[in-house]
């Protein structure tokens, strides 16, 4: 059996000191297999973003370890690998706002991600991805001229440019209406199932929970499985 795309073991992170200290991650363990699309639910301040930062090698947890592709890359807050290189080659990020690079057009945003990951023929690949996400007609448009939905599609194309093992999305549909929100969630499901990436999506949007293979819920820094989704999880375990 393949190693999980990412595996977190007993992550702990505290903000602040003394009586004002807040435990954002409290002994969190998680495993996501490739091809799985998982939702991370929970109220604001429950630790969701902290977990995404820890899994995305942006802000490591103080204690615990994160394995990537079976290899320990962060242990007790210490990086054991080049984290920027890991992000560049194996991770994709999608944000609440699309966060496209403002001075690059749609195609260049995707092309740059290809280039950073060392993929050859970035332009061709960028065009393919934009076509895959049905936004190729806007490839020469700058971000501010795209609609919210188009921006998110370009952002997803960018996140897929390096053929990631893990896609982390932080409330990617927060700025979209219900119909567009569902379309984007469906896209993530396609990405996970067709391209074999593990996808973890932080969301408050309960209207599209049926697209997820597995649901997690965070509260006060603790992670637990949430209500079972309509589709059975394919290859994941908490």
């Amino acid at each position: 059996m393949d190693a999980p795309a990412v595996e977190a073991r007993r992550l702990t992170k505290t903000y602040g000191h003394g009586s004002g200290a807040v435990r954002a991650l409290d002994d969190v363990s998680l495993s996501l297999a490739r091809g799985t699309v998982a939702a991370l639910l929970g109220p604001s301040g429950s630790g969701k973003s902290t977990l995404v930062k820890a899994l995305g090698f942006v802000s490591p947890a103080e204690h615990g370890e994160v394995r990537f592709g079976g290899r320990v890359v962060v242990r007790d807050g210490v990086a054991l690998a080049d984290l920027a290189a890991l992000r560049r080659r194996h991770l994709g990020f999608v944000f609440q706002k699309a966060n496209l690079t403002t001075f690059l057009d749609a195609r260049e945003n995707v092309e740059l991600a290809c280039e950073l990951s060392g993929k050859r023929d970035g332009r061709r690949r960028a065009r393919e991805l934009l076509a895959y996400l049905e936004v190729s007609h806007r490839e020469r448009s700058y971000p501010e001229t795209l609609s919210g939905g188009e921006q998110q599609r370009v952002a997803i194309a960018r996140a897929l440019a390096n053929e990631p093992s893990l896609v982390l999305a932080d409330e990617p549909t927060a700025a979209l209406d219900g119909a567009r929100s569902r379309v984007v969630m469906e896209l993530f499901r396609r990405v996970a199932h067709e391209r074999g990436a593990a996808v973890l999506i932080v969301t408050h949007d309960h209207r599209a929970l049926d697209v997820f293979d597995v649901l997690y819920e965070m509260e006060d820094g603790q992670l637990r499985p949430a209500t079972s989704p309509p589709h059975p999880p394919s290859r994941s375990s908490p």
């Binding site: 560049r88 991770l91 944000f95 950073l116």
Partner: peptide
């Protein structure tokens, strides 16, 4: 910040 997150050197 976004470019750094994407791993840009």
């Amino acid at each position: 910040a976004v470019l750094k997150l994407m791993g840009a050197p």
